[in-house]
Design a protein around this nucleic acid. Structure first.
Lengths: 213, 213
DNA sequence: GTTCAAAAGTGGCCAGACCACTTTCGATGT
DNA sequence: ACATCGAAAGTGGTCTGGCCACTTTTGAAC
């Protein structure tokens, strides 16, 4: 079975083997990978093939390269595939909508989880957040959503969300209007009190105002 | 401004120029791109650099290559972004539980969408599915969930789901017990009638029996 | 007009070279 | 012993040229 992947496309095979190597040698984010020449020798392939694989991963933001310095494993939040893909596809309105909807799927689930389990009340982190909401006139939309997802506790969901949020980052990563701030406060209060339905309703309302801006 | 992209990383610049070329020459999905040697000459760079760019796009599924034939622009639905991402993101995600929960997030949303919009009733595909449920004693769990996600219509969500489902595939890709079959039928009926709450309840029940197996 | 083999075109892969940049390390001076 | 600094080694960036395997085109023979 594995033979299939080995049969053709050396560079694809190298991508696989790199993944394995990272796992085996427990290379952490930010740490250095073997040099192109070393990889070439260890894997028994030409350096150009190694480079094709590395460049592919670099385009995705999975690795970073420093001229003369080496190749390094990138931290998760640096993945850029979204930007790259948007470059090629994002004219497609349907795709754009799918991204937004999928992102919201994760946001809504996080709201549900928090409302049901009441974890929000117990987290000290949120205190400063609430205080900030009281003091400041406005707040960053993306930050609010991120905190919610983080609090929900599903790290994989968080990672997926990060990627999706990178798409319409401009629309999301901005400060709220005062109108929105009120909605957000309502939403958070509802979550804190365990009113799932009200929280979701406020969320939908927020998203509607977001779209219109 | 544009100078910045030109300054370093020839292969990244080539990716940009390829995008421009595709747009300019109105190359449609499935159509042929200039050969590596031609691109090399036209862009005034080495063939190896062109290859690094092309291989990067190939990894993303944006182009397809036929040995001896040429390079072709891939159709939109062949993009592999999610697959590639999951390869690196899911790998380091230790918690099986997170994978399962995240998968279910997408499944539940699909059920909600279908229940609310009533698309289930209008799709001829489902007729054969219902018939199969009547006739057969048992049915493949994974197939049921897949059909639901597909019907919901969010292609991105579907792609994410596919990757997640691949992880606990063994537990999912099997035939249902008779007990489960009844639950599934209840769920589908509820969805068809627009009873969102009942459908979700049946779903939760199904998942519980799934876990115990 | 058909058939089929040769030729041309194309991607797959490799080896070697040179450059620019970074890191390492040891000689030098204090 | 310590700091400084420059040479050497290491590394990525890119190009050239070559050979192979495969596909498409071409053109000659039928």
């Amino acid at each position: 079975m594995d033979k299939k992947t080995e049969q053709k496309k050396v560079f694809l095979d190298i991508v696989q083997q790199l993944r394995q190597l990272i796992k085996m040698e427990e290379i952490q984010a930010g740490e250095k990978l073997p040099s192109e020449r070393v990889l070439s020798e260890r894997l028994g392939v030409g350096r150009s093939s190694v480079r094709e694989a590395l460049r592919s991963l670099e385009l995705l933001g999975l690795i970073e390269t420093k001229h003369g310095g080496g190749t390094f494993l990138a931290s998760t939040h640096k993945h850029q595939l979204v930007e790259i893909l948007s470059m090629f596809i994002l004219e497609d309105e349907k795709s754009k909508k799918d991204v937004e909807l999928t992102r919201q799927i994760h946001e809504k689930e996080a709201i549900r989880v928090i409302s049901c389990t009441g974890t929000l009340r117990t987290l000290p982190v949120w205190d400063s957040f609430f205080v900030k909401l009281e003091i400041e006139d406005t707040i960053n939309c993306r930050d609010v959503l991120r905190e919610i997802i983080i609090t929900a506790g599903n790290r994989l969901s968080l990672k997926v969300w990060f990627q999706l949020a990178a798409y319409d980052g401009d629309r999301l990563n901005r400060n709220s209007t005062e109108e929105e701030k009120l909605i957000i406060q309502t939403m958070l209060k509802s979550m804190q009190l365990g009113y799932e339905k009200e929280a979701l309703k406020a969320y939908e309302q927020w998203m509607k105002t977001l779209r219109s801006n």
